[in-house]
Nucleic acid binder design. Structure first.
Lengths: 107, 107
DNA sequence: TATTGAAATAACCATATCGTTATATTACTA
DNA sequence: TAGTAATATAACGATATGGTTATTTCAATA
């Protein structure tokens, strides 16, 4: 997962409603209609939050008859934790800028 | 760190520029003027990103003469990783809603 | 097959975000 | 102390975000 993908996932998690959805999905799968009464927002709003989490790969959906249940992608969540603890190393980029004389010296 | 604070930190990290700043500060401290040529944005834009990271507690500033150097708050970053791996447990809230008959049954 | 219910999508609105340029503040220095 | 350099703040604009209501899609069922 590169920096931009990591930022995208963190942004998806950086909303209280979505983060609580993730915490709920950590307990068990939920369908959309179960989530609606938990949050004081409309069904489309819940759907959009779930879609945002889905496009970042944080949740998966699967239809059971009339209902669509969402599951937490624990692997993705672990990847994010790992990504935060192993941030990309920009040393060579800094050196490169230095060689090109584009780096300011402050001391 | 509660859910809202965690979401706030994740939101702060959920921007490619700010996440790269965090990755850079993981190497060493940087002052504002060093960061400007690394990103193709203006000085005030860099200042604002740093301020956003500071208000979430992810970085600290300290002035050295004319320059203001920013440091990564590694403890905070660890807290966030920990928070992601130990999400709050909403079991009792779900049970409470169930007792009040506010929980939908989907099966 | 017509109806019902769940979820997704569309269209819209208010506010937040992230960039800009201009200006103010702060600290060093001639 | 006047001038310069670094940083912060102010004011503004374009786009993104997160909510709404209305409508569409899809699956189950009378």
């Amino acid at each position: 997962m590169d920096l931009h993908q990591l930022a995208d996932c963190l942004k998806a998690l950086g909303d209280p409603t979505r983060l609580k959805i993730i915490a709920l999905l950590n307990l068990r799968d939920f369908c959309v209609c179960e989530l609606i009464p938990i949050f004081n927002i409309s069904q489309p709003a819940v759907s959009k939050h779930l879609n945002r989490l889905k496009t970042s790969g944080l949740v998966t959906e699967n239809r059971r008859g009339q209902w669509v249940f969402y599951s937490l992608n624990r692997k993705k969540l672990e990847e994010i934790g790992y990504g935060l603890n192993h941030l990309p190393d920009f040393s060579t980029e800094i050196e490169e800028l230095d060689k090109q004389g584009l780096l300011v010296k402050c001391d």
